[in-house]
Amino acid sequence: MTTLDEIEAAIPALRRYAQALLRDRAAADDLVQDCLERALARREGWRGEGSMRGWMFRILVNLHRDGLRRGARGPQLSVVGEGMAELARPGAQEGHMALREVQEAIARLPAEQREALLLVALEGMSLAEAAAVLGLAEGTLASRLGRARASLRAATGRDLPRQERPREEGTEQR
């Protein structure tokens, strides 16, 4: 596989991750495009240390963090669930979570928990891989993941007996 093939092979996962991270189709496409542009510009310097997937995710995460920093001054507009209406239809409650609930819970996570959780829960990365992408110690990542998992569980009402699932916002730890 050439470097270019490896770059191309990483793109579908990057698109999936970006979409989950931003929940906005156009913004996710832009992020992946920026990531690819940077990866292509730097591909001559790629020495094959670590995985290409990890390298490209690192680029994407850094671009995303830059974007958050730039956007931090003004009000944050985030479109939740655009283009996802079909998938997020509630139904099949037993044994499955309502997808819309999960989506909204992910959206409410702090940015650093969201980027960490999606790497392992959606992309299937190991702690070591994800820690390298995020530039964190594994222990830091593990506790961040624990908090993200717990928030998600609380937000989807799963930490309470099934018969009474509270619907009010803000009753859990925020």
Partner: peptide, 12 residues
């Protein structure tokens, strides 16, 4: 957590 991962996979 398995259910969380399944939901994420279904969404994205």
């Amino acid at each position: 957590w398995d259910r969380q991962d399944t939901a994420l996979a279904a969404l994205y």
